[in-house]
Design a protein around this nucleic acid. Structure first.
Length: 278
DNA sequence: CGCATTTCCTGGTAGC
DNA sequence: TGCTACCAGGAAATGC
């Protein structure tokens, strides 16, 4: 599932291709709806940049609009037209000028979004509107992260997935980072100590950076713009590995459901919150 | 407002 | 083989 490293990988590949390109036409193949709002306004506008906030791709356009793409679970952005149409093609953006001149958004499960808003108007994208700091922002200190965690009674993993304490962490990297620092996913966010918060922020940065280096994690659907798989799946320590030995202590990793999401953790390295004060 | 629950979707797979 | 049932999950919608 695309999280920050996967979206950043896609962003880096789209940027040199799309920046400065004028949109000739947008074709919506999916049933119209709020996930594909405003696309009729695209024609004639130039893509001025390809940015990212958390898992959202943000492409400011020349006439005050902004193209927002979110890959959801199964979204893929690729240059199209080369072969027969992809099975779940949802949106095609035709560009003026040299080939490749067609950006295709395919999305099997349609959890993704590909829409145009007025620039900076995220009123229909509440998660983006309330998104936490970028994890690699130097101004985002461990103290600020600790303070953010202190604002919620939710389980720390659930709160991370909300995108509010920090942007871009999803199910895979939440499990990886919590395992690295020995914090149980059910620990109430507000009970994460300052020293743990500092280590957790560093672990989030480390795991996201390592995954970006590997061009992300491909489990099923995620591909780069040029169709490559991300290699980080081979380096996951815990995600999807319930029953395997903990790479640190050898105990069998366990699975539970947190906030409706499958969660893998080490029962020895990540003591349950009820036992933290013993 | 904060938090919990439900909903959206389809391919893959388990079970019979 | 072919059917049904269920599972995966990011973010929005809904319910308190």
């Amino acid at each position: 599932m695309p999280e920050l490293p996967e979206v950043e990988t896609v962003r880096r590949q789209l940027e040199p291709w799309l920046t400065g390109r004028r949109i000739e036409r947008v074709e919506l193949l999916a049933p119209p709806g709020p996930k594909y709002a405003g696309l009729e306004r695209a024609a004639g506008q130039t893509i001025e940049a390809v940015g990212r906030r958390g898992k959202f791709l943000l492409m400011p356009l020349s006439q005050g609009d902004e193209l927002v793409a979110h890959l959801g679970m199964t979204g893929v952005l690729t240059p199209g037209g080369a072969s027969e149409p992809a099975k779940h093609l949802r949106v095609a953006v035709e560009l003026e000028g040299r080939t490749p001149n067609r950006l295709e958004f395919t999305d099997t499960r349609r959890f993704g979004r590909f829409l145009i808003v007025r620039r900076g108007d995220y009123s229909n994208l509440p998660t983006l509107a309330a998104l936490g700091p970028e994890p690699f922002d130097d101004a985002f200190t461990p103290e600020l992260f600790h303070r953010a965690l202190g604002r919620s009674t939710m389980a720390v993993k659930t709160y991370l997935l909300s995108q509010r304490p920090v942007a871009g962490v999803g199910n895979i990297y939440a499990d990886e980072a919590l395992w690295r620092v020995g914090v149980h996913p059910l620990t109430p966010a507000a009970e994460v100590r300052a020293d743990e918060a500092a280590l957790l922020l560093q672990a989030i940065r480390d795991v996201l950076a390592a995954s970006i280096d590997a061009q992300g994690t491909t489990l099923n659907d995620y591909r780069t713009v040029y169709g490559q798989s991300g290699d980080y799946a081979d380096r996951l320590d815990v995600y999807g590995r319930a029953g395997h030995a903990c790479p640190r202590c050898g105990a069998p990793l366990q699975r539970l459901v947190v906030g409706g999401r499958g969660t893998t953790f080490c029962p020895d390295c990540q003591p349950h919150p009820d036992r933290r004060h013993q």
